[in-house]
Amino acid sequence: MELGEADPKGLVRESYNIDGISDAECRSIFIDWALSLRMGVDSRPALAALIAHYGPGCDSHPMTLVLRAALDAPPEPKRRGGRAGRMTG
């Protein structure tokens, strides 16, 4: 995937240019980035392209950490509490 398609508004690029950017700011930028992707674009290849481009040499940058976390598989759902969780089918 091309970088222009992976980061259409340049939000991720700009996050790497902000000195002292926080984790919270990177998470907010990430949400804006995700919402800016065109409909139908798979985010996983886009994330991989962004990490491949911006990640080298920036392993501890908050945006690199956010992008890598987004690629991780979501945790397995756990049983919810309450009456419905105790009832057997």
Rank of each mutant, 00 (worst) to 15 (best):
H53N: 12
G40N: 09
Y16K: 02
M1K: 06
M63A: 05
S36F: 14
P56E: 05
P62M: 05
T88W: 14
P75D: 09
G57C: 10
H53C: 08
M39I: 11
C26A: 03
L50K: 12
P62G: 04
S60Q: 15
G55P: 08
L50R: 06
N17H: 08
M87G: 00
C26P: 01
R80C: 03
A70S: 12
K78P: 00
M87R: 08
L11K: 09
I18S: 00
H53E: 14
G20Y: 02
D23M: 13
L3N: 06
A69T: 12
C58G: 02
S36V: 11
D19R: 08
E14C: 01
E14N: 03
H53P: 06
S22M: 10
A6P: 01
S28E: 06
G4D: 09
G81D: 15
G10V: 03
P74L: 11
L71D: 00
S15K: 00
P45V: 14
L67T: 08
E5Y: 02
D19Q: 09
P77T: 15
E76H: 04
E5N: 05
L37N: 04
G81H: 15
D32K: 15
G57M: 11
M1P: 03
A34N: 10
V66D: 04
P75V: 09
R68P: 02
R79T: 06
A52K: 14
I21G: 01
V12Y: 09
I51Q: 07
A49Q: 09
G81A: 15
E25I: 11
L3V: 10
G57T: 13
R83V: 13
P75Y: 13
P56L: 11
R86H: 12
L47M: 06
I31Y: 10
L65H: 14
G40M: 12
I18Y: 01
Y54K: 02
M63L: 04
T88R: 13
V66N: 07
I51Y: 03
G20L: 07
R68W: 14
R68Y: 12
P62F: 04
M39K: 10
G85S: 12
I51S: 02
A46W: 07
D32S: 13
A34K: 13
L35V: 00
C26G: 06
V12C: 03
R86M: 05
V66E: 01
I18P: 00
V12F: 02
T64L: 13
D42P: 04
G55F: 02
A52F: 02
K78R: 14
